[in-house]
Design a protein around this nucleic acid. Sequence first.
DNA 1: CGACACCTTGAAACCCCTCAACGACTGTGG
DNA 2: CCACAGTCGTTGAGGGGTTTCAAGGTGTCG
Lengths: 191, 191
Amino acid sequence: PVQQAYVLHEGWACSYRQMSDGSRQIFDFRLPGDFVGLMGLMVDGVNYNVVALTDVVVSEVNASKLVSTFRQSPMLAEGVLWSLSGDNAILAEHIVNIGRRGALERTAHLMIEIGYRLNRVGFAPADRYECPLTQKDLAEALGITHVHLNRVLRQLREEEMLSFNDHIVTLHDMPALTRLAEFEPAYLNNR
Amino acid sequence: PVQQAYVLHEGWACSYRQMSDGSRQIFDFRLPGDFVGLMGLMVDGVNYNVVALTDVVVSEVNASKLVSTFRQSPMLAEGVLWSLSGDNAILAEHIVNIGRRGALERTAHLMIEIGYRLNRVGFAPADRYECPLTQKDLAEALGITHVHLNRVLRQLREEEMLSFNDHIVTLHDMPALTRLAEFEPAYLNNR
DNA sequence: CGACACCTTGAAACCCCTCAACGACTGTGG
DNA sequence: CCACAGTCGTTGAGGGGTTTCAAGGTGTCG
């Protein structure tokens, strides 16, 4: 249960839900530039957690007074607003990803999305990024088992589209990947 | 592509993404009291649609000037803020639902959620509501086929937990349903 | 009465899961 | 230095939940 909000400057985090059977579902990764823990400020008792996946650099957002601050600081309110609607778009896309795409397309889509978001904030070139996740983490975000994810990654590697070794993701064939995953970056672009 | 935002006063709507193979994924239903189309105002060119599922009564939100209005009308900004974070919580829960639960639990969870939300705004008693959806609509929200949903509904009916006939949903055994779906309404409660 | 949307059911195929095992690597304590 | 446990990645075999394909039944509307 998160009581505090932050802006993430460096590092990775993720928000997830712990299930009673011991498994968990990661529903979003938080990358540099993202707000963390906003949802918990406004929705009472949401059953979700946030954990850092690397060392992180954050700055606190004064939580308790956030709402009252909006009146005095419309700039902050606007920032939070943009962030929340951006998150909405990302969450919606994840629903589409998990609900409608097979494991192969789904995996490709998430890997591209993360690369795109990192590149967007200047933390990676377009076709390569450092990825602190384990295969288990990834699987828990994709709604598949880590065993099956491993097979999916092998296939993507064998077809020379994408490799994920030693915590480095390389997007070898972006055109093929984008076609496979039907990736359209529009949902990541603010007005 | 939605260019306008509304507040939904009566009726149902849903936001969905149309896939290239003709299928679609509904990622949220909009019920009385919800904002509709907020996301499209801030995220540029998001590939999603909204459609009314019944006759609806709405009021427009002045879209083009929404953001600039925030400065003069902090009340509106706050309202939008609450709405967006509430939507975030709902979307996150849908990811958990689709990613981690089997078809039976998943179906139960969504049916309870909708009932809870309707009851919350005074549009239905606790254990029964009118539901304009077809089985195909429901399946498209749950990420399963309408054929399989039909079998799931039969099972829920045979086990006397829930029935969905003639566009009336009846939650016959709430304790059993809540247990089955591990439903926890916390994510629907604003602070 | 035909066209159409929606619900229902059966049978077979498939994708993904479960269970199980093993190798590589890391850190830890004897 | 080595035995040991723990995490992570990898692969195989079998089973099961869901999909696909196909068909028929009901009700509504022109």
